Computed example of a mutant assay.
Amino acid sequence: MADLANCPRCDKLFVKGAHDVCPDCLKQEEQDFQTVYEFIRKKKNRMSTMQEVSDQTGVEKHLIQKWLKQRRIHPGEFPNLTYECERCGTQIYEGRLCLDCAGDLQSDLNEETRGKTIAEQEQEKRDKQVYFNVDQENKWRN
């Protein structure tokens, strides 16, 4: 079932599907993408930074970052187009986190997993312990 949403760019109501903006803004974003891509394709502009591309094309940095994250612009071809790690702000080429933050997150997850397994082992020990209660009054009754 499709969801109704307000476009984050123009606040127009639209049916949210594969795209996160309304059809009119999507057309504008595609035109902006073509502008950026034509700019960075030129040999003299391939080493441009995010700020330089944004200034020269008039396209907002967050849109260029969006295309980098979507891999529509490949960072291997344009090495100075980077964006910030979502956790610490370090400049990165791909993904959402830098290698340091990803490593920290992975080690935290491993610790949590180890903690859960220890807790699960303790619970299993408790579950295996069986206590019998003998009712003294009804002990010999059938």
Rank of each mutant, 00 (worst) to 15 (best):
A18G: 13
H19Q: 04
W67A: 08
C98E: 00
C22R: 05
G58D: 03
K125W: 08
K42C: 05
Q28M: 02
Y93T: 06
I40F: 02
Q28G: 07
L4C: 11
G76T: 06
H62N: 09
L99Q: 01
Y131N: 09
V15N: 10
N142H: 13
R71S: 11
A18P: 15
Q31D: 11
L63I: 08
R114T: 09
L109I: 04
F39T: 06
Y83P: 00
Y83M: 04
K61A: 04
G89D: 13
D20I: 04
V130W: 10
K61T: 05
T113K: 11
D135W: 11
L97V: 02
A2W: 14
L26S: 00
E86P: 15
E52Q: 15
Q121M: 09
G17I: 04
N142Y: 10
W67E: 04
C10Y: 05
V15M: 10
H19E: 03
C101Y: 01
E52D: 14
L99V: 01
E29T: 03
E137T: 09
P23G: 00
E84Q: 14
T49D: 14
K43N: 15
E111L: 08
Q106Y: 00
M1Y: 12
G17E: 07
N6L: 06
K44V: 14
T57I: 02
L63C: 08
A2L: 13
D24Y: 08
N45A: 07
